[in-house]
């Protein structure tokens, strides 16, 4: 707290007055001088509080005018919300496609397993010479059908497995999106820390450094527009316009 120099002629005169009043038993006069001195102190205190209030106000104004913070609130947070919703859509879709493929594959496997077991049983009784001619005819026809169905069944099974494989591509895209949101959260955290510092140290507010992100990452439908292509067809069009 900066105080004015209290050694001055006025105060020396007041001190003399006070001493004189006390020695002369002038209670009224002594009280008046003490009140005067108290007022001087009070005035200093009010001025100091006023100065601090003004500094705090200026610092808060400077802080809230930092572009990056406004940008985060207006753009980045809603953008992150949409990107996270896209993560949900993609992962849901992947789970759905995987489950569909598995649900179609299981009956195929069960059918092949059942028919293989039946043919194996027949084959065993044939090798143990327990089969008559009629039984052999039945087995041959069953084996024929089983083997020809099986090759088609494996083609179908393989296509389901490929669908399951392709459904895993969500992990790459969602991983990238979530990483970006994590970076944003870290940035918000940094700003909150600055705010806390500001409350304690109003003179030391540093403007936030804005980092350039060169790579945009996966485009999200409904979020990205303008300079962004919306799919492979647009990439092909753009490249062919460049002579590709």
């Amino acid at each position: 707290m900066s105080e004015e120099n209290i050694i001055n002629d006025d105060n020396i005169a007041r001190a003399h007055d006070l001493l004189a009043s006390l020695e002369n038993g002038d209670e009224q006069g002594a009280r008046e001088v003490i009140d005067d001195l108290a007022k001087i102190r009070e005035n200093n205190l009010y001025q100091e509080v006023g100065k601090l209030t003004r500094e705090l106000h200026d610092a808060i104004s400077a802080f809230s005018m930092d572009d990056r913070i406004a940008d985060i609130a207006e753009h980045d947070i809603p953008d992150a919300r949409q990107r996270l919703n896209y993560v949900i859509t993609r992962t849901e879709d992947a789970a759905d496609r995987t489950l569909t493929a598995v649900e179609k594959s299981i009956p195929l496997c069960e059918d092949m397993e059942r028919r293989a077991g039946s043919v194996l049983n027949d084959w065993k009784s044939f090798t143990q010479r327990e089969m008559d001619v009629e039984g052999f005819r039945k087995m041959s026809s069953e084996m024929d059908g089983f083997l020809s169905d099986q090759s088609g069944g494996f083609v179908e099974l393989k296509s389901h497995l490929n669908n399951i494989l392709m459904a895993q591509d969500f992990q790459d895209l969602t991983g990238q999106i979530i990483k970006r949101v994590i970076n944003l959260v870290a940035e918000v955290e940094g700003n909150l820390v600055n705010l806390i510092k500001l409350a304690g140290l109003p003179d030391h507010v540093e403007p936030h450094k804005r980092e350039k992100v060169k790579l945009e990452g996966p485009a999200v439908p409904g979020v990205d527009s303008g300079d962004t292509v919306s799919g492979q067809d647009e990439v092909d069009d753009l490249l062919s316009s460049l002579g590709f």
């Binding site: 790579l215 945009e216 962004t228 753009l238």
Partner: peptide
Amino acid sequence: TAEQKKEQIVEAA
């Protein structure tokens, strides 16, 4: 790649 900005596609080309 997931990069879909036109200027990036042009840069790659």
